[in-house]
Design a protein around this nucleic acid. Structure first.
Length: 440
RNA sequence: GACCCCAUUGUGUAGUGGUUAGCACACCACCCUUUCAAGGUGGUAGCACGGGUUCGAAUCCCGUUGGGGUCGCCA
């Protein structure tokens, strides 16, 4: 089996494209076949090195490695290259010459048109089944522009043939183009690959997700603190499932179970809420060591110089917070009090908890914690409860002002864990400072 | 408009002739609780419609309606 992902470098990687790449990759890995990457950069205007970089980054981030194709560092792997269409002109010229010589194409106003056969063409699709197109009234179409550049329909088919692609797994928006592609392959005297058209990903309002839609670009997830495992898992679910009331699964499991004929025929709407939930689920369940490299990136982009801190310290913070948040972005926000001495106080939090009563509670707490020799979470919890009992009040009396004093916020991870990680010195200093700043 | 694809709660799906139509997200309620999450329990909500076929249709056939896609010298 030889499958390919053939994106056009547009400057961003569409989630639909990412899902197409994923399905191709899954099929290749499932069958022990070859997954190749081909860059369809025939549109010179849009073709920039940065735009190609985005494709490499996105695929690598998702963990979709390709066996053949251009390499991010330059050069290529595989013996069916070049893998940039812009470098394959001679091959297309040869195909054009062949079609012209065999009267399957002709010149028209300077362009070259393909002689579309006027007959019924059946697409035997691996997912959609046999689809019949009546092409008796079909028009001939351009395969080489007046400026001499070849057109998508031609190059796409020629490359699939030249690269010995056995299965073309692509979006269903291409189903209607397939008769053309079948006809070109036949005119070239070749056997066309098998086709498998996967359902489209729709936006919230139900039309094909486009560049303009929120959440359409993979980079939004790369930059938004999502875990690639979660995004990949979610993408699997758009048109495919394990069929056993379970939606969170490993990539190995997906690879083992993936079958083309189990893919849906109906389009799927992209549900950002569910992806968010899934990302949180991954954050909670993944081992902190797996999250660490991502967390370092999240913290870095939030403006915290991670190299300043021991990775053991970062791990403690991540371990504390990851249970409570859904994205890395959120995690970085919550982590602020651990990486910045100058904490910023949220006005609402101050107003609500650093009242006269709150300050009084902080004074009592300060006196108590000053005596503490054991600053573990369990010991602190005991201390807070004892303090509350002594003063005949609820532990909340101390917890809330303490959280605001040490983190500046009224919402955050477990307070006792927070205090433990901050350590006695920082905790006492922050409580003192809060008392000084907000006692009126 | 022509052609093509599709149709199970709001969303993603399980279901392939006989089920109290299952699961997940979202939503609501309660429980747990130091906040927020998470977790637990329960709940609201679905086979688009009309004809067939059949002893029996979410499941098979036809039509209607609805949604989507394609009709470029873009890819």
């Amino acid at each position: 089996m030889r499958v390919r992902f053939a994106p056009s470098p547009t400057g961003y990687l569409h989630v639909g494209g990412a899902r197409t790449a994923l399905f191709n990759w899954l099929y290749a890995r499932h069958t022990g076949g070859t997954f190749l990457l081909r860059i369809e950069d025939t549109d010179a205007v849009r073709n920039t090195p940065e735009a190609v970089r985005v494709i490499f980054d996105g695929l690598q981030w998702l963990g979709l490695d390709w066996d053949e194709g251009p390499l991010p560092g330059g050069g290529a792997r595989g013996d069916r290259g070049p893998y940039f269409q812009s470098e394959r002109r001679a091959i297309y010229d040869r195909a054009l010459r062949f079609l012209l010589d065999h009267d399957q194409a002709y010149e028209s106003d300077g362009a070259i048109r393909f002689r579309m056969p006027r007959k019924k063409i059946i697409v035997d699709d691996l997912i959609c089944g046999e689809v019949c197109f009546d092409c008796t009234l079909e028009q001939d179409f351009v395969i080489q522009r007046k400026d001499g550049s070849p057109v998508f329909h031609l190059v796409n088919v020629v490359d699939d043939l030249e690269m010995k692609i056995s299965h073309v797994i692509r979006g269903e928006d291409h189903l209607s183009n397939t008769p053309k592609h079948l006809a070109i392959a036949a005119a070239l005297g070749a056997d066309a690959p098998r086709y498998a058209h996967i359902p489209l990903i729709l936006n919230r309002s139900g039309s094909k997700m486009s560049k303009r839609d929120i959440g359409a670009s993979l980079s939004e997830y790369q930059d938004g603190g999502y875990l690639p495992q979660a995004v990949r898992n979610y993408l699997c679910l758009l048109g495919w499932s394990l069929r056993e009331n379970r939606e969170i699964f490993s990539i190995e499991e997906a690879t083992a179970r993936f079958e083309l004929d189990q893919i849906h025929r109906s389009n799927a709407r992209f549900d950002a809420d569910k992806l968010l939930w899934m990302n949180g689920a991954y954050l909670r369940s993944l081992d902190v060591d797996e999250i660490l490299p991502h967390a370092q990136r999240w913290l870095e982009s939030a403006g915290f110089p991670v190299e300043k801190w021991e990775s053991a310290y970062i791990k403690e913070v991540v371990l504390l917070i990851k249970e409570k948040v859904k994205t890395g972005k959120e995690l970085a926000e919550w982590a602020q009090p651990f990486f910045r001495e100058e904490i910023s106080f949220q006005p609402d939090a101050v107003k609500r908890f650093l009242t006269a009563a709150g300050i009084q509670a902080l004074r009592e707490l300060l006196a108590d914690l000053s005596e503490a020799s054991d600053f573990t979470a369990a010991a602190l919890e005991e201390r807070f409860q004892k303090l509350a009992r002594t003063h005949g009040t609820s532990v909340r009396t101390y917890v809330h002002p303490a959280r605001v004093a040490t983190t500046g916020r009224e919402v955050g991870p477990s307070l006792y864990g927070t205090l433990t990680i901050l350590g006695k010195d920082r905790v006492l200093r922050r409580i003192r400072r809060a008392i000084e700043s907000f006692a009126s």
